[in-house]
C-alpha cells in the first residue's frame, strides 16, 4: 500500500477532491434535478415532475419579498466600503494604539452570527434594550423605535447590525492594501512636492482596486448566504418582512417539506452567485 502510494502520490488527492466533487458538484446537479422532480411531501421521488417550482415562484409574493430583501442587503457593500476606507486611512496615520483599535474594530467579525444576532436582539429590544435605553439616556427620546420588531424598520436594522459586523473587516483589507503601496513610490511623490492628500488621492487610492474587489466579493457572498444572523435576530419576521432567499429556502424545504420548491430557490441563489460574484473573481484567477 505504502509503496503503491509512493509510486502514485497523486492518489492521495482522491480523498479530498472526491469529497469536494461529491458534496459540491454532484450536489448541485442533484439539486437541479430535485427542483424539477415529482417529489411531493417527505419521501424522496425522482421522476420528472415539470417546472412547477419555477412557475410557482412567479406568483409567490414571499419569493419576491425574499429576493428584494436579499438584494437590499447589498446596500451593506457601499456603506462598509466608505466606512472601512475612512477607518483604514485613519489607521494609516501611525497613531499610537492603532493596532489596539484595529483589533477592536475587527472583533465583531470574529464572532459567530449566532452570538452577534443574540446580542443585537438585546440591543434592539424595544422595551428595555440597549439602544433605546441609550437614546433615552442622552435625551434623544424621539429616536427610540421598534427596530427589528417593526415591518418598516426591520431591514434597516439588520443592515446597520451587519455593517457593524463587517466594516472592521473591510477596514483591515483596505489597510493591508494601503500598506502594500511601495514606500519608494511615496517617497518619490513626496520629493516632487506632493501633499499627503494628493499622495493618497493620486497614488494610493488607485492601487486599492484589489482590496475593493475583495471587499465587494466577500460582503456580497455573505449577503447572498444571509441566513444565520437574520434567522437568529428575526426568524424572517415580523410577518415576511425580513425573509431573504436563504430563509425562505429553509422554511419551504425543512419546515413545509416542499423540497422541489426549496431546491429551486437554492438554484436561484446559485445563479445570483454566478451572475453577481463570479465575474468579479474571474479576472483575478486569470492573472
Amino acid at each position: 500500500m505504502v509503496g503503491f502510494l509512493k509510486r502514485n502520490p497523486l492518489l492521495l488527492l482522491v480523498i479530498p477532491l472526491g469529497l469536494v466533487f461529491y458534496f459540491v458538484y454532484v450536489g448541485i446537479g442533484w439539486n437541479l434535478w430535485v427542483s424539477v422532480s415529482d417529489w411531493r411531501g417527505l419521501n424522496a421521488s425522482y421522476g420528472f415532475g415539470g417546472f412547477g417550482a419555477y412557475i410557482r415562484m412567479i406568483g409567490d409574493s414571499t419569493f419576491w419579498i425574499s429576493l428584494r430583501n436579499t438584494l437590499l442587503l447589498f446596500t451593506i457593500i457601499p456603506i462598509c466600503i466608505v466606512l472601512g476606507l475612512v477607518l483604514a486611512l485613519i489607521m494609516d496615520q501611525g497613531l499610537k494604539g492603532t493596532n489596539l483599535f484595529r483589533n477592536l474594530f475587527l472583533l465583531p467579525f470574529a464572532l459567530s452570527f449566532v452570538v452577534t444576532g443574540t446580542i443585537w436582539a438585546w440591543m434592539y429590544n424595544p422595551s428595555s434594550g440597549i439602544l433605546n435605553s441609550l437614546l433615552r439616556l442622552i435625551g434623544l427620546e424621539s429616536l427610540t423605535g421598534f427596530w427589528h420588531t417593526s415591518q418598516q424598520t426591520v431591514m434597516p436594522s439588520i443592515i446597520l447590525a451587519l455593517v457593524w459586523q463587517f466594516s472592521g473587516y473591510v477596514a483591515l483589507i483596505f489597510l493591508a492594501g494601503i500598506k502594500s503601496v511601495p514606500q519608494s513610490q511615496i517617497n518619490a511623490a513626496r520629493l516632487d512636492g506632493a501633499s499627503q492628500f494628493k499622495i493618497y488621492r493620486r497614488l494610493v487610492l488607485p492601487q486599492l482596486k484589489g482590496a475593493l474587489t475583495t471587499s465587494v466579493v466577500i460582503i456580497a457572498m455573505f449577503a447572498l448566504r444571509s441566513f444565520d444572523f437574520i434567522w437568529v435576530l428575526t426568524g424572517g419576521g415580523p410577518g415576511y418582512s425580513s425573509h431573504t432567499l436563504p430563509i425562505q429556502m429553509y422554511k419551504e424545504t425543512f419546515m413545509s417539506s416542499r423540497f422541489p420548491y426549496g431546491a429551486a430557490i437554492g438554484n436561484v441563489l446559485l445563479v445570483l452567485v454566478l451572475l453577481l460574484v463570479m465575474p468579479l473573481t474571474y479576472r483575478s484567477y486569470r492573472r
Binding site: G27, W30, V34
Partner: peptide, 17 residues
C-alpha cells in the same frame, strides 16, 4: 470555486446523503 457555493443550492442533496 466551491468557496463561493451558496449552501442553499446543495442542502437538499446534503440532507439526503
Amino acid at each position: 470555486s466551491a468557496i463561493f457555493l451558496p449552501y442553499q443550492a446543495i442542502l437538499v442533496p446534503l440532507f439526503q446523503t
